[in-house]
């Protein structure tokens, strides 16, 4: 089938503003959007810039705004979109070129919640044991691939740029609800600040955007509860 692929392109050396470029691509209904981007880059215009690594929905490199929704280009099939497909860079982060954005603000928020196990107690002789139920408690958060689909779909994140964003809060949730972790007070400093969880207005964009089907908004609410019950 013939697909009209519209890409919002931006070359900082040439353009002042991003502009739409349209490409005609021959595609199978079972092709992924990533395959279409490859066809454009390899056969029509080699200057097209986008990120991709594994191509199988695990590395989290190719999150894009496809037909108005944040999705992974490698997990989105042409047959689910139709014959006209629009592709834009994810929003709220500075565009470097075409579909490549500067991820540094996203990772700064990720670092702020200290996404690693904090436990100063001396480790037991073998390992810190955990029951299957305790492991299950934070299972949703472990699915995150840091693709930024959720954070860049969040209207609060778009505006002032100081909000930690859903992804960082999901990562915090993964450690806050880990029975082996002792670092909640350190994480609450970032999470409870004016740029933390209280900026969430439960718009649910993040939950809809997540390609890993994590119930993001629910996890954010659980972190709010954890902070509330820690204080009162």
């Amino acid at each position: 089938m013939q697909v009209t692929l519209k890409i919002l392109r931006f070359d900082p050396g040439k353009n002042a503003k991003p502009e739409w470029h349209t490409y005609q691509v021959e595609a199978e209904p079972t092709d992924r959007v990533l395959d279409l981007l490859h066809k454009v880059k390899w056969e029509q215009d080699g200057t097209l810039a986008f990120r991709r690594s594994c191509g199988h929905g695990i590395c989290g490199s190719d999150a894009m705004l496809i037909n108005g929704r944040n999705r992974l280009a490698c997990k989105t099939l042409v047959k689910d979109l139709g014959s006209v497909i629009t592709v834009e860079p994810i929003r709220g982060l500075p565009v470097e070129k075409d579909l490549v954005v500067d991820m540094e603000p996203f990772f700064a928020a990720y670092r702020a919640v200290k996404p690693y196990l904090i436990n100063e107690e001396p480790p037991p002789a073998r390992e810190r044991l955990q029951s299957p139920e305790e492991r299950e408690r934070y299972d949703q958060g472990t699915k995150c691939i840091l693709c930024a689909s959720c954070t860049t779909s969040c209207p609060v994140f778009w505006v002032n740029g100081t909000y930690l964003g859903p992804a960082a809060i999901v990562q915090a949730h993964r450690f806050l609800f880990d029975s082996r972790d002792r670092g909640k007070r350190e994480r609450f400093k970032a999470l409870g600040s004016a740029s933390g969880v209280w900026r969430c207005r439960t718009a649910y964009n993040c939950t809809e955007a997540c390609p890993r089907e994590i119930p993001v908004t629910q996890l954010i609410e659980e972190v709010k509860r954890a902070i509330l019950f820690d204080r009162f």
């Binding site: 700064a108 400093k189 409870g192 600040s193 709010k224 902070i227």
Partner: peptide, 16 residues
């Protein structure tokens, strides 16, 4: 910016 993210305050919790 990092210091702001780590700054400790419960003000927003109390407002909530």
């Amino acid at each position: 910016a990092e210091a702001r993210l780590e700054a400790s305050s419960n003000l927003e919790l109390y407002w909530w």
